[in-house]
Design a protein around this nucleic acid. Structure first.
Lengths: 189, 189
DNA sequence: TATCTCATGTAAGTGGTTACATGATTGC
DNA sequence: GCAATCATGTAACCACTTACATGAGATA
């Protein structure tokens, strides 16, 4: 599993430039994937070398040239083959906040509450933008009202929403625990 | 952020072998970190080279020799320094299931329900073992009953539980959506 | 007889990040 | 004048995986 498969998936739906795809990551794919521009451009170059995509350079006025990529037949084959493979068993779990909290506890450096607040603000902001997208694009009472082709896209958004809600619930529990560890931080007033 | 910091965190709490640490990943650290044995052994070697840890070889009867690692003073310094650094903004989001569902939809290969069921079974099994750990080690009505040093460890478990519960809730929504896309799969009977 | 546990490693490769670089156009 | 948008890249590095390797002792 890698970015290359995601790029093939996007290009299967239609031609796009690297820049387009990066915008998509920001706009409505960020719930399940993200990548830096360097990686996107490099992987597109590598897919081209492997013959899975091709591009046509397009000159523009008042803007730099761009490369519009299209998926090739062998690109489609590779994508289909990958889709039919089973999922990888081991999924990476890497939670930096948890490690730093534990490490902070053992080393004694404890700006834990401050760190939690920062993270919480970030997650709340994310959730807010997800709610907005939901309202703007999927303001319905049943999934039947959403066009079939968009239903899975909607579910990627739901994943983001449920994940953030769950995180924030956990953060509330964590706050109580941190207060219980450092009563001076404000547990009683 | 890398495994090295996690290793330093563990060794800060006491000496351990690479094998010990791997067991811990399996037993009660898997909620927020995991790693292959190759990576653990190699990173321990690199930490040794950097002077952040040292080891003593210990011969055993009827068992292979082992290397018991301890953190050094500069290891503790490095850990403290890292803990006080702010968290990385960009956290990786990589959901293979979602990409394959979307890609399967566009390429037309759709064993989606089967795939969902497999994943669901896996997540349910995980959640079950988490519940068991909770019952065995933290069967309390308030966190105050848990010794202070174990409270953050408990919160790592809670993270795992809430995360899996949230995933399973999403899976239920997803099942309805997949049924709505392929009515023959059994939506009506 | 086969598999699991204990305990460690090397070699080669993939996937991803960080730092550095260019350059016109548009808006405050 | 300063920052942002559009649009692309190179080079060096870090983090992690996969495949291969060893070998005794315990358990089924």
């Amino acid at each position: 599993m890698s970015l290359k498969h995601v790029l093939l998936t996007v290009l299967h739906e239609g031609p796009a430039t690297g820049y387009d795809i990066l915008k998509e990551f920001d706009a409505h794919m960020g719930f399940f994937w993200n990548a830096s521009h360097q990686q996107v451009y490099r992987d597109l170059a590598q897919l081209t070398e492997a013959g899975l995509v091709t591009f046509t350079a397009v000159a523009q006025e008042h803007k730099p040239d761009k490369k519009v990529y299209v998926i090739t037949e062998s690109g489609r084959d590779a994508l289909r083959q990958w889709v039919d493979e089973p999922l990888k068993k081991r999924q990476r779990i890497r939670d930096e906040l948890l490690v730093k909290l534990l490490a902070g506890e053992v080393t004694g450096s404890s700006s834990q509450m401050k760190r939690l607040d920062e993270e919480r603000r970030r997650h709340r902001a994310k959730l807010e933008t997800y709610y907005q997208i939901q309202q703007e694009h999927f303001d319905v009472t049943s999934i039947e009202e959403i066009p079939a082709i968009e239903r899975l896209a909607y579910m990627t958004l739901r994943r983001g929403i449920l994940g953030e809600e769950s995180w924030l619930q956990w953060a509330n529990e964590l706050e109580a625990v941190i207060r219980s560890l450092h009563p001076a931080t404000g547990a009683g007033g």
